[in-house]
């Protein structure tokens, strides 16, 4: 499962790169990351939720407990 999880994460990174790249290809008819964020951030609920999560990422990796130890041994 260790390797399978890494494969899934890697696929997500590749997919994200493809989506980001595809937004700048007119033939793909895909919105850019900026357009998507502008649309999402126009309403309060997504704007607040996204900024809250973004801030928590900084707290989680720079200040708080980043890695949770296993409960068993």
């Amino acid at each position: 499962m260790h390797e399978a999880t890494l494969v899934i994460y890697s696929l997500c990174v590749v997919a994200a790169a493809v989506l980001a790249f595809g937004g700048h290809r007119p033939a793909w008819q895909l919105g850019t990351v900026t357009e998507l964020l502008d649309a999402a951030m126009a309403a309060r609920a997504p704007r607040f939720a996204l900024v809250l999560f973004w801030w928590w990422l900084g707290w989680h990796f720079l200040v708080g407990q980043t890695v949770d130890p296993p409960l068993l041994g």
């Binding site: 899934i8 997919a15 357009e35 649309a39």
Partner: peptide, 22 residues
């Protein structure tokens, strides 16, 4: 533009949900 943004939203949502489930 709305359609393009919606397509991007679906694509990104799929990636984010998959990463979150993993």
């Amino acid at each position: 533009r709305r359609l393009r943004v919606r397509r991007a939203a679906v694509g990104w949502a799929f990636v984010v949900v998959l990463a979150c489930l993993a």
